[in-house]
Amino acid sequence: MAVYAIDEKTGESSPIQHIESRGVHPRTFRIDPSGQMLVAEHNLPVTVRDGDQLKVVAAGLSVFRIGDDGKLEFIRKYDVDVGNSSMFWMGMVEL
């Protein structure tokens, strides 16, 4: 995933961080209403090669803290068993 800073005067963006999402194909993401947390949704499990073996990277939700500088800090990934389906959408609600 890529994080960009926006120059307030020119509107120009510049990359400030690239961070691994800990899954394959992060289809959607949401930022919580406080602006302090981002959750990325990985819609389906994917089989990948790991050396001479194959392993499954599970579908799931990756949680990141958003720092004061806008950069992301990985917190944890919640694997989700989607069976033969996929997660189509992920959102957040404000309590």
Rank of each mutant, 00 (worst) to 15 (best):
A2S: 14
V3N: 05
V3A: 08
A5Y: 00
I6T: 11
D7T: 09
E8H: 08
E8P: 10
E8K: 13
E8S: 12
K9S: 13
K9F: 06
T10P: 00
G11D: 03
G11L: 09
G11S: 12
S13F: 09
S13D: 04
S14C: 07
P15N: 12
P15G: 11
I16H: 03
R22I: 05
G23A: 05
H25T: 13
H25Y: 08
P26N: 07
P26R: 06
P26H: 01
P26G: 12
T28M: 10
F29S: 08
R30S: 15
I31N: 04
I31A: 11
I31T: 10
D32L: 09
P33L: 07
S34T: 15
S34G: 10
S34L: 14
Q36Y: 07
Q36G: 14
Q36E: 13
Q36H: 12
L38F: 02
V39G: 02
A40N: 02
H42D: 05
N43M: 05
N43H: 02
T47G: 03
V48F: 00
V48Y: 03
G51Q: 07
Q53L: 06
Q53M: 03
Q53C: 01
K55R: 14
G60Y: 04
S62W: 01
V63K: 04
V63A: 09
V63G: 06
L72A: 08
E73W: 02
F74D: 15
K77F: 06
K77E: 06
K77Q: 10
Y78R: 11
D81Q: 10
N84C: 06
S86A: 12
S86H: 07
M87I: 15
M87H: 05
F88D: 12
G91N: 12
E94R: 10
L95G: 14
L95C: 10
